[in-house]
Write a protein that binds this DNA or RNA. Sequence first.
DNA 1: CTGAAAGCGCTTACAG
DNA 2: CTGAAAGCGCTTACAG
Lengths: 343, 343
Amino acid sequence: MQSDHSQRPTLADVARKAGVSGKSVSRVVNGEAYVSAELKAKVDAAIAELGYVPDLAARSLAGARSFTISLLLDTNGQDYVIQLLEGAYEACKLNSYHLRIENLDATASNESLLERLDEVMRHSRLDGFILAPPFSDNTAIMDWLEERQVRFTRVAPCIERERSPCVFVDDAAAAGEIAQYLVSKGHRRIGLVNGSPRHGAAIARRTGFLDKIAEIAPDAELVEATGNFRFEDGIDAGKALLGAGNPPTAIFAANDRSAAGVMNACAQLGISVPDDVSLCGFDDSWLAKLVWPYLTTVRQPVSDLGREAARLLIEKDTGEGAPKQIMLGHSLIERDSVRSLDQ
Amino acid sequence: MQSDHSQRPTLADVARKAGVSGKSVSRVVNGEAYVSAELKAKVDAAIAELGYVPDLAARSLAGARSFTISLLLDTNGQDYVIQLLEGAYEACKLNSYHLRIENLDATASNESLLERLDEVMRHSRLDGFILAPPFSDNTAIMDWLEERQVRFTRVAPCIERERSPCVFVDDAAAAGEIAQYLVSKGHRRIGLVNGSPRHGAAIARRTGFLDKIAEIAPDAELVEATGNFRFEDGIDAGKALLGAGNPPTAIFAANDRSAAGVMNACAQLGISVPDDVSLCGFDDSWLAKLVWPYLTTVRQPVSDLGREAARLLIEKDTGEGAPKQIMLGHSLIERDSVRSLDQ
DNA sequence: CTGAAAGCGCTTACAG
DNA sequence: CTGAAAGCGCTTACAG
């Protein structure tokens, strides 16, 4: 690859061809102020003619930027990982940035997580990190990054949102919409399969759901089951909820994966969805259409979350001081897993 | 980050502390030959004391290596992407390499794919690429990389395996085992849901399956349906295969995803798996246990494929000239979607 | 608004 | 087996 690179035009080549100094070429390339239109035109022409592309390693060595950002995530059983990756990749590509991946184990101790981060930072330069859940709510990681003045943005944080630029969806409101939807369909005995207490989103969904029920149907009976966002949790919760006497007529599971688990429990128990029990998920992951019947759920624009998180990291702060918080919209996706009790 | 980096110990610091030249430190760090044990010990001690880590950007700028490799994949609907990523990431981490992602659209023209690769290579230095399916069978990409003398390894290639180091599973043999298994359970009217003709693996699975049937049960009736590895294809194929008269008693779908589609078709048609029809998938993706009944399938060690592909890229060729081909084992995973006709 | 010089932290020839 | 010098291709102060 060395030979390949040694034939590439350099900044000096561009400078020679344009008849200007290297510093001026650098100014144009970096979009700095105080460049006359005339000079810029000459440089741009030379760049185009030579097909010049600045060398990443040299920029990184000489300057403070690396044009590379890292996505911190846990691939373990997360349905949204791929979409997040897609969104972040797109934003990077658009801005000629590069995307690196750090796959960490969210169940590991903070100590070992920070150790790994330290290793990563020592080995290389990075313009910043995108923290995916559940790292987006990890204050130890945030403290560590802030101490070292490393920029970061967060995807779907639930705590201290003002602490960094971040992108999220209103989980509580979305869960509230599901509550409203189920109540509007006549359900008054409702089961709730909770998500991982480690994820703030699970808390927000629970709270939003319960608050809305309390508000619009205070007479409703609620049964809760613990969960951890996993398929197996959905199976267990479904059996617990539906195996007892006086089962709920509708169940809201905190994510699609555990909703699929509930469906599995139904299949095992010989209970029909939605004839015997209605079911809602959350995420609108591709899983929602890999079950039968298709799952009614809330759509989160996951790849948009990834894209915006990357964009916020790449674009310099606009100087207004305050980090940006971006809330993206969600939407209830009606499919076939809920029936109306009134009909 | 600049301030952070300027405080890091450099190679010169280590040289000073050890009382040797910078070149000697470089030799030790790079594990070069012709270093006396005594000198190496001094340098190692100084490195440990200072906590020295070589700077990636500087190494990359000065030398021919970048310690970064890129995984070329298409995230679109591929169940194995995450596992591949996990495996490749692990191998990189172990060797202090960094993993970058390029997410390309496999349905795009070769021209636009190569254009993007060119962009990527111009922007930065890369020690090589891992080609994931279906790029592992894309000769245009291989030609392009070879012309530029860029190293690459391939995951699950089906053609020209000698052309690069690669890692794969014996798809034909694995499909043959499924054939044998179904025949041993008494099935003689068998459906086959094919995979994407774009993926060589689909061809190999079909051939392996048909050949084995012809060998051990030449009297068996076979019905084929086209497919493209997608869930929807499984639904369509399932309906086509099972909606007609004299339906098969067992179906082999070329991947788990389309097998899930077949299950969906069964649910829609009121057909029970495995009571009315038996079903096998391929991959043992996590989907296999997100359906009911759990899917009997063939397990591919996907994260191992990713790990080995990265390892082959990172480790220099051993100089024997011939690229390495590594075949990893597969195994039939018996679950609950197949029943024996004899009982 | 523009430029000449120094330097980022390594590796590559080249000597010895 | 070991080292002194040059250079990779940029950006950063610093001048003007």
